[in-house]
Simulated assay, not measured.
Amino acid sequence: MRCEVRWSLCWENELQLSDHIELTEFFRKAYGPTGAFNAKPFEGSRSWAGARPELRAIAYDSHGIAAHMGLLRRFIKVGEVDQLVAELGLYGVRPDLEGLGISHSIHVMLPVLQELGVPFAFGTVRHALRKHVERFARYGLVTILSGIHVRFTLPEARLDKPPTRTEDALVIVLPVGQSMSDWPAGTTIDRNGPEL
């Protein structure tokens, strides 16, 4: 039997220190199995990896946090066009609930995206997650774009690394206030900041 979860939408300034600590533990457990490096940003009470979200969708069940998705409004540059988006990221599901599905968190976020009046939601995922995302895309809500180079800054300036990194990630676009035909053409996206 599938466990019941309740979703909560929280603006970042509504979270208490105890919320950040609980989220930090959640992300360590959710991201740790994919590699120690992926869990490293979540130290102390830091409940974000790169850019800090402004809004979070958090699912709870009887065992605590079950799933999470963050949202951050920003302008990205697609080719030569500055495009307003709501970046979705910092997605995680507690390992014992794999299969809860990204679709649940996007459905929770959709009314908020519409209220915010953003033309598109945008996110990136590793190529290893393509089949997972394609299952959701077959319902026609999102478009998956490949062959796009996405550039972003590192969360902190470091002497031993260049300040920016470029990755060939899968780009996910969800039309909210405009149609997909309005998405700018381009093979590069510049976040002009750290990824969410």
Score class of each variant (00 low, 15 high):
residue 24 T to Y: 11
residue 91 Y to I: 02
residue 10 C to W: 12
residue 127 H to R: 07
residue 172 I to S: 14
residue 116 L to W: 15
residue 65 I to D: 06
residue 186 G to A: 12
residue 183 W to I: 02
residue 54 E to K: 13
residue 10 C to E: 15
residue 48 W to D: 00
residue 100 L to M: 05
residue 174 L to M: 14
residue 184 P to E: 09
residue 69 M to C: 00
residue 168 D to G: 05
residue 64 G to K: 01
residue 168 D to A: 06
residue 126 R to G: 11
residue 108 V to E: 11
residue 159 L to F: 07
residue 187 T to Q: 12
residue 99 G to S: 00
residue 21 I to C: 03
residue 78 V to D: 02
residue 118 V to M: 12
residue 164 T to D: 01
residue 56 R to F: 09
residue 148 I to N: 00
residue 131 K to M: 00
residue 28 R to N: 04
residue 159 L to V: 12
residue 34 T to M: 13
residue 95 P to F: 14
residue 174 L to V: 09
residue 101 G to D: 06
residue 127 H to N: 04
residue 85 V to T: 05
residue 51 A to I: 05
residue 11 W to L: 10
residue 194 P to I: 14
residue 92 G to K: 05
residue 110 L to G: 03
residue 142 V to T: 14
residue 81 V to C: 06
residue 148 I to W: 02
residue 148 I to A: 00
residue 7 W to Y: 04
residue 47 S to A: 03
residue 36 A to P: 07
residue 8 S to M: 14
residue 117 G to W: 04
residue 63 H to F: 08
residue 91 Y to F: 04
residue 65 I to R: 09
residue 33 P to M: 06
residue 143 T to G: 08
residue 122 F to D: 06
residue 100 L to Y: 09
residue 32 G to K: 07
residue 51 A to G: 07
residue 183 W to E: 03
residue 65 I to K: 09
residue 121 A to Q: 07
residue 66 A to E: 06
residue 76 I to M: 00
residue 73 R to Q: 15
residue 129 L to S: 03
